[in-house]
């Protein structure tokens, strides 16, 4: 299962068979977009992407990371766990270096409403939902 990841300037991208992720930093916000299906074949690419997203957010001192799930058809629990690890890592930062996380869902993607709500329960002070 080939995966590719790259970082250029303040941009990050990752790709596997049926999954891609991109992120770019502007001002004090990182905007990330996920596309395709995040299943076992995408796990490594997504984990690498989230790790670099976290590193970028910290090094650039951003206030907010916005993740757009609207074009993501499905995410399995292994990939969901990647978000759990990321959110918990942000929670463990000193309060002054923490950043907010906004998860954007599509009302038509019913799984997104349920999964992102569960993720937001991990850190209600850091994670907000938008649809």
């Amino acid at each position: 299962m080939a995966t590719t990841t790259s970082t250029s300037g303040s941009g990050i991208s990752a790709q596997s068979a049926d999954f891609s992720a991109t992120a770019a930093c502007q001002d004090r916000t990182v905007a990330a977009t996920l596309t395709g299906t995040a299943d076992l074949t995408a796990k490594k690419a997504l984990d690498d992407f989230l790790s670099r997203l976290h590193d970028t957010a910290r090094s650039q001192g951003v206030a907010e990371v916005v993740v757009d799930f609207k074009s993501l058809a499905f995410m399995n629990s292994s990939c969901l766990k990647g978000f759990v690890t990321w959110i918990c890592a942000v929670q463990e930062l000193p309060p002054q270096t923490q950043y907010r996380i906004v998860l954007v869902s599509s009302p038509q993607m019913l799984w997104q409403q349920r999964s992102l709500h569960a993720l937001s329960c991990l850190a209600t002070d850091l994670v907000t939902l938008q649809s």
């Binding site: 629990s77 766990k81 999964s115 569960a118």
Partner: peptide, 26 residues
């Protein structure tokens, strides 16, 4: 239970351990 399991497994790199709890909760 599901969110508690998420917290418990957050550091475990090898397994997610969330699939069945997800079926129950989500």
């Amino acid at each position: 239970m599901y969110v508690g399991l998420m917290r418990r497994n957050a550091r475990d790199r090898d397994i997610s351990g969330l699939g069945l709890a997800r079926i129950r909760a989500e």
